[in-house]
Each structure stands twice: as C-alpha cells, then as structure tokens.
Amino acid sequence: MDEEYDVIVLGTGLTECILSGIMSVNGKKVLHMDRNPYYGGESSSITPLEELYKRFQLLEGPPESMGRGRDWNVDLIPKFLMANGQLVKMLLYTEVTRYLDFKVVEGSFVYKGGKIYKVPSTETEALASNLMGMFEKRRFRKFLVFVANFDENDPKTFEGVDPQTTSMRDVYRKFDLGQDVIDFTGHALALYRTDDYLDQPCLETVNRIKLYSESLARYGKSPYLYPLYGLGELPQGFARLSAIYGGTYMLNKPVDDIIMENGKVVGVKSEGEVARCKQLICDPSYIPDRVRKAGQVIRIICILSHPIKNTNDANSCQIIIPQNQVNRKSDIYVCMISYAHNVAAQGKYIAIASTTVETTDPEKEVEPALELLEPIDQKFVAISDLYEPIDDGCESQVFCSCSYDATTHFETTCNDIKDIYKRMAGTAFDFENMKRKQNDVFGEAEQ
C-alpha cells in the first residue's frame, strides 16, 4: 500500500465507483478503499435476508415463511433508472452494461384523492384515464405537443414562451391547466419533490418532461429500469471497470487518518501504512468535519406477500404521492420490486416508501404510502441524515459526494458526479471521457 497514487477513493457507493471508473479509464492511477467488507456503502443491496434483520437490530431473524435468505437482495436506497437518463448513458458509454441485466418497471402510478391511478404512457391511455376530465385532456394534450416540439435552440418552437424568464406557473396558465393536472405534471412527469420549481424559469421543467417522455418511448410500460439482483450491482459494475483499467481495490480496510500538508491532501493512513495521493474522493462518512447536515430522509422497507392493490398485479412499480394531495411540502414515493428481479424469495415483494422528513414524527409522514401497502409482513425503518460538503474541495483537493436524496431516480446523483468531475479535472464533464479506450493495455477482449 505504500505507494504513490493520482487519486484515492474512500467508500464504494455508486458515486465513488463511477468516479473511480472514469478516473481509471482516463489513465489515472487509482486506489479504492472501503472500511466495509462489502461494496456499495449507503447504496448497497443487503443479502442474505438475515443480514438485513441484523442491521435493523431485529434479533429474532426472519421467519421460515420468508423463504431462503440467499434469495434476497434488499436495497437500502430505493431508486430506478430513467431509461433515457444520465446513468444509463454512463453505463452505455463505459460498457458496464455487459455486467448487468435490466428489466423495465411495469408501471408508474400517481395518488389522487386517496386512490392510485396509472400515469398514462400512451395517448390512448391518456384519453381513457380517469385522472382528468374530457376538456382537461384536450388542454393537457396541447401542452404535451408543445413540450414535444420544444427545442431550446429554435425560438420558432417557443410559442411566445421565453425559456429563460417565463416561469412554469405562467406556462401552466397559458395552457389553462387545472391544479390536479399541474400536480401530476410537476411531480409524476417532471419528478420534482416540491413546488419550488413553479416560480423558476420553465426551461428545466420542460426538459425534465421531455426526458420522461423519451424514456417512456424506449420501452413503453414506464420510463424506469431496474437491474436484476438489486442496485448493489451498479457500484460493483463500475468497480470492475476501474479494476480492468488498473485500479487497486481494498475492502474491509480501516481508514485511520487523512493526511494533510499546508491545507492540501497528501495521503491516507491505514493500519500503520500511508498511501500518498494528489486528490481524494470520499463519501460524507469519511470526513464528518468537512460536511454539513442538509436534512433527513425516511425510508421504510416493507416486505409483502402480495402485489400492491390497484396496480394490475404489477411485479414492479412506482407510486408518487404528490405533496398537495397530503398537505406536505415534499412528495412521498413508493418503489416496489419483487422475486421477478431476483431480489426476493418466490411470491414475495419489496416495497420501499420514502420521503424528505418535515416533522418530528417521520413515520407518521409516510402513513399515506403504508396504507396502500397493507397487509405488511415486516417493516424496517431507516431515518438517514443527508450531508453535503461545506466547500468545493478545490483548495484541499478533498472531494466529497452528497448523500443520496429522496428522489426515486439517479439524475441528482449523476449531477453530483459531473460536478465533482468538473472540480477535479478543471474541465466540464463530457460523456466521451467515459469511453473505454480501444486496444489499450487494460481493455477487455470482446465477449
């Protein structure tokens, strides 16, 4: 370990593993360490099931009705991949897709007046949907046509809207959309967690709705994908990429100290040895004095023996409960997957309800979601602090990732990755940087 590296990475969460992969592909010498004996950090999948019970201090362990412990891979952080989103792009560019198998999530649902409705995925579904009345549908269709044709580089498509100054509230007004449709559009399509976006320039919202539609167009059922064997497969896929390009991995490796000289990182000390480096990437748990708390998320993992009611017996789905429907500031989400994804025993389902904490009784906040899941065989409640770095790391060369937020997709995580890359490399992130180099010394032969 007593060696000189360009970059040392602490923690094998998804953000850290993707950055480690990119740095290795770009010719950097990388050492990647984790104090845990497993990959994934906060974003790991726990197996066998006995391990999950232990982690949540349920000492009696799983009953026999849960089947074989080894058949379970339970995500600690519930997220899906947008089919046309940035993480899929990263997987394709790096060819990490060859280590993973994905399934399309069967449906996306939205909560309205105590019931759940399928988010329409085709024009026919939209016309048949009970989510809105006849005239509302016509106006909504006009709005969707506007979004589909919108091109930020072609003012002819703006229809009198200025993407940089017109607020989204004004765009909704222009198409005369009612409150329910606005809730549905902002939260189930643009996937905002709160209503803060309404008074911001509309460009980002329009682009988010386009991303949803384009992702949906790829597979038809929903815009989301999920990897077989759980999300823990993602960091491992990128760790393989890093290793192929010469990255060194050490799990179960305690970090005793991060060594600084004149305010700059110069190395990491572990078990009496020092590895030197020019730059350091880590998750917040490794540098508690360089991060601040930015809120909390509650996630309740529920094991069920039945599909969720009114989802047409889907073996995977997402449910969004827009905040307006339950008098909150932030949406509540449910991600459900099952034995069909090799993450649970035969006939079992895993539904994870999550939201940003707003009160001193977080469990009560998630109740509307839990009511949709009854009866629940077993619950595991996790309340996590969200951390963000206190500075950009440019001076110390210590670059810290943000905690995983309450969103049900990876777009915010990818933004964090691109942002850290830019601060480390001094140049904007470009997907081309992730391409495997042809015929290089570490390149794998085609399968």
Results as ranks from 00 to 15, higher is better:
127 L>F: 10
176 D>A: 14
207 N>P: 04
187 H>N: 00
406 A>R: 15
427 T>P: 11
138 R>T: 04
256 D>V: 13
3 E>W: 05
103 K>T: 11
216 L>M: 02
25 V>Q: 11
345 A>T: 08
332 I>M: 05
14 L>I: 00
145 V>E: 15
112 K>G: 03
266 V>L: 10
188 A>G: 07
424 M>L: 10
156 K>Q: 13
40 G>S: 03
439 N>R: 13
124 T>N: 02
329 K>T: 07
241 L>T: 01
350 I>K: 07
17 C>Q: 11
211 L>C: 14
385 D>N: 06
25 V>A: 10
447 Q>K: 00
275 A>R: 03
256 D>R: 02
78 P>F: 13
264 K>Q: 13
276 R>L: 06
326 V>Q: 03
307 P>S: 09
278 K>R: 12
317 C>K: 05
266 V>I: 15
35 R>P: 11
63 P>Q: 14
306 H>R: 06
382 A>D: 00
395 E>K: 04
341 H>Y: 10
9 V>A: 05
54 K>Q: 03
407 T>V: 15
86 Q>D: 15
368 P>L: 08
150 F>H: 11
358 E>A: 05
213 S>T: 00
228 L>P: 08
57 Q>H: 12
437 K>N: 07
202 C>S: 13
9 V>S: 02
178 G>R: 13
267 G>K: 06
201 P>T: 04
290 R>N: 12
94 T>P: 03
181 V>T: 11
283 D>Q: 03
166 T>S: 03
358 E>S: 14
29 K>S: 10
397 Q>H: 07
390 I>Y: 14
253 K>R: 10
328 R>G: 08
83 A>P: 03
259 I>D: 14
22 I>M: 08
402 C>I: 13
327 N>G: 02
82 M>L: 12
234 L>T: 01
438 Q>L: 03
50 E>V: 13
113 G>K: 05
182 I>L: 11
224 Y>V: 04
119 V>D: 00
234 L>S: 01
167 S>L: 14
158 F>V: 06
85 G>K: 05
130 N>Y: 10
172 Y>N: 08
299 R>Q: 13
186 G>Y: 15
227 P>Q: 01
282 C>W: 05
321 I>A: 01
413 T>K: 15
186 G>C: 03
183 D>A: 05
140 F>C: 01
128 A>Y: 15
152 E>V: 07
47 T>P: 04
390 I>N: 04
127 L>W: 05
383 I>C: 12
351 A>L: 05
295 G>R: 08
323 Q>L: 08
390 I>M: 09
26 N>I: 12
215 S>A: 01
42 E>A: 00
172 Y>V: 04
2 D>P: 00
171 V>H: 06
93 Y>D: 12
112 K>E: 10
16 E>T: 01
326 V>W: 10
279 Q>L: 08
119 V>R: 05
86 Q>W: 04
284 P>A: 06
404 Y>H: 09
351 A>R: 01
410 F>A: 15
257 D>Y: 05
159 E>S: 09
219 Y>F: 07
151 D>C: 06
74 V>W: 10
352 I>T: 04
76 L>Q: 15
401 S>A: 05
121 S>Y: 00
17 C>D: 06
47 T>S: 13
381 V>I: 06
328 R>K: 09
290 R>L: 09
172 Y>H: 05
403 S>F: 07
118 K>R: 08
388 E>R: 14
169 R>L: 10
371 E>V: 02
363 E>K: 05
96 V>E: 10
168 M>R: 02
116 I>V: 09
209 I>D: 13
443 G>W: 12
343 V>I: 15
310 N>A: 13
351 A>F: 07
407 T>P: 01
9 V>L: 09
45 S>R: 14
70 R>C: 14
113 G>C: 13
211 L>A: 05
24 S>D: 10
372 L>C: 03
207 N>H: 03
70 R>Q: 10
432 E>T: 11
411 E>W: 15
314 A>P: 03
2 D>F: 06
346 Q>H: 10
122 T>Y: 01
359 T>P: 02
259 I>N: 01
180 D>C: 08
417 I>T: 08
379 K>V: 02
300 I>Y: 01
87 L>S: 02
8 I>L: 05
418 K>G: 13
267 G>D: 00
395 E>Q: 13
377 D>E: 00
300 I>D: 06
220 G>R: 03
259 I>V: 12
235 P>F: 15
195 D>Y: 06
435 K>N: 07
112 K>D: 04
98 R>S: 04
294 A>G: 03
316 S>P: 03
345 A>P: 11
151 D>A: 06
116 I>F: 05
419 D>E: 00
18 I>H: 05
199 D>N: 09
115 K>S: 13
304 L>A: 07
412 T>C: 15
196 D>K: 01
284 P>S: 08
304 L>S: 02
217 A>N: 12
420 I>S: 02
329 K>M: 06
447 Q>G: 13
402 C>G: 13
432 E>L: 07
394 C>V: 03
437 K>R: 11
409 H>Y: 03
152 E>G: 11
77 I>D: 05
172 Y>S: 05
95 E>D: 07
353 A>W: 01
35 R>G: 09
111 Y>L: 13
297 V>G: 01
86 Q>H: 07
110 V>M: 09
176 D>C: 14
95 E>K: 03
281 I>G: 14
430 D>N: 05
365 E>T: 04
431 F>A: 02
21 G>V: 06
141 R>S: 05
418 K>H: 05
50 E>M: 05
263 G>I: 14
185 T>I: 13
291 V>I: 15
254 P>R: 05
372 L>F: 10
101 D>H: 11
275 A>S: 05
36 N>S: 08
50 E>K: 11
272 G>A: 05
11 G>S: 05
118 K>F: 02
231 L>S: 08
353 A>L: 14
2 D>Q: 07
442 F>S: 12
336 M>K: 05
237 G>A: 14
114 G>V: 04
56 F>P: 14
168 M>D: 06
101 D>N: 12
85 G>V: 02
242 S>Y: 14
316 S>K: 05
211 L>P: 15
183 D>G: 05
274 V>L: 10
204 E>G: 09
89 K>R: 11
446 E>K: 09
333 Y>Q: 05
134 M>F: 00
15 T>W: 06
208 R>G: 05
99 Y>I: 04
147 V>L: 09
122 T>I: 11
359 T>D: 14
53 Y>N: 08
227 P>W: 15
20 S>Y: 12
271 E>V: 03
64 E>G: 12
350 I>T: 08
66 M>N: 02
357 V>R: 12
323 Q>P: 08
56 F>L: 11
337 I>M: 11
193 R>Q: 14
203 L>M: 02
242 S>C: 13
295 G>A: 11
187 H>K: 15
159 E>F: 13
366 V>M: 11
276 R>Y: 14
443 G>A: 12
179 Q>R: 10
203 L>T: 09
291 V>L: 05
91 L>T: 13
413 T>R: 02
281 I>D: 15
309 K>Q: 05
366 V>K: 01
354 S>N: 06
169 R>H: 05
398 V>M: 11
394 C>P: 02
419 D>H: 12
113 G>M: 12
361 D>E: 02
203 L>V: 08
390 I>A: 15
421 Y>W: 07
362 P>L: 04
123 E>A: 11
369 A>V: 11
130 N>K: 13
4 E>D: 09
399 F>N: 02
65 S>P: 09
297 V>F: 05
276 R>C: 08
221 K>S: 14
316 S>Q: 03
59 L>Q: 08
310 N>L: 14
74 V>G: 03
143 F>V: 03
331 D>N: 08
85 G>W: 01
8 I>Y: 11
242 S>E: 01
217 A>D: 00
436 R>H: 07
298 I>M: 02
12 T>P: 02
335 C>S: 12
341 H>N: 00
369 A>P: 00
215 S>L: 08
17 C>P: 01
400 C>R: 04
120 P>R: 02
370 L>G: 04
330 S>Y: 05
243 A>C: 10
229 Y>S: 03
47 T>E: 10
327 N>F: 13
118 K>W: 02
58 L>V: 07
14 L>M: 07
163 P>T: 00
304 L>F: 10
115 K>T: 04
264 K>T: 05
382 A>S: 07
278 K>H: 15
75 D>V: 07
335 C>F: 07
83 A>D: 00
257 D>G: 12
